[in-house]
């Protein structure tokens, strides 16, 4: 479904990715693990078009999307939930969800998708009119995920969804990710919390210094 090969990205003079390769198959949860600065976030940003790779190739469902603009990539169903949640704290929960459906022009379709997000994440329905900034960390993460769901992802990329959350909440977030996956969406999960991620992932990659050093099924990792 997604095939990243020999990706190289540098910021100014610093090379963040040196030949990163990975694949995500239909219906899979793939965990991308590694230390701070290993290149996890950069990999996601490159896939979603937010940074331009210097070399390498990104293919999605057979098409080369290496140099496509972010709106086009989202339109293809490749949706990125950025690190640190990045929800809109001065807008209501409902408005945050509507943003996810920005590319959906059909009002009925958009309403249906927002309702589905509420069904999957009932906590958000209770908080519908609250401002994003008044939610707890876990709820904010759920909102970020819900917002991405409204965009209609076929492959959902999550950047550190467990960051700053209590262990119990991390487990709840992971459960939601598993539910989303079971409904047919592939997931690329970037995590420092390897234990939590590998519990739900099918396969995993460990990256170090901008390239993959270890990969395989989740259990042995």
């Amino acid at each position: 479904m997604l095939e990243v090969s020999d990706l190289e990205v540098s910021y100014g003079g610093v090379q963040a990715l040196r030949g990163m390769s990975l694949t995500v198959g239909e219906g899979e949860i793939v965990a991308l693990l590694g230390n701070n600065g290993a290149g996890k976030t950069t990999t996601l940003s490159a896939v979603s078009g937010l940074v331009r790779p210097g070399a390498g190739r990104i293919a999605y469902e057979g098409d080369d999307i290496t140099r496509e603009a972010p709106p086009k990539i989202v339109g293809r169903g490749l949706v990125h939930v950025p690190e640190g949640r990045r929800i809109f704290s001065t807008l209501t929960v409902h408005e945050n969800l509507l943003l996810g459906g920005y590319l959906v022009r059909d009002a009925k379709e958009l309403a249906g998708r927002v309702d589905r997000a509420y069904t999957l994440l009932p906590k958000l329905a209770e908080r519908r009119t609250q401002h994003g900034g008044t939610l707890s960390g876990g709820e904010q993460q759920m909102l970020a995920i819900g917002r991405a769901l409204v965009a209609g992802p076929r492959l959902l990329m999550l950047d550190e969804p467990s960051m700053g959350l209590a262990p119990l909440i991390v487990a709840a977030v992971m459960d939601v990710i598993r539910d989303i996956n079971q409904a047919g969406t592939a997931v690329l999960l970037v995590e420092q919390n390897a234990k939590a991620a590998l519990k739900i992932a099918h396969r995993g990659y460990v990256i170090e210094n901008g390239r993959c050093v270890l990969d395989g099924p989740a259990l042995p990792l």
Binding site: L50, P70, P71, V79, L91, L98, Y102
Partner: peptide, 23 residues
């Protein structure tokens, strides 16, 4: 309007807006 909503999203967080598919 729809574009008005997009403006507010860009105002609040340009990167997140871009990641959600807003040009």
């Amino acid at each position: 309007s729809r574009i008005g909503r997009a403006w507010r999203f860009v105002r609040e967080d340009e990167d997140a807006a871009e990641a959600m598919g807003i040009n």
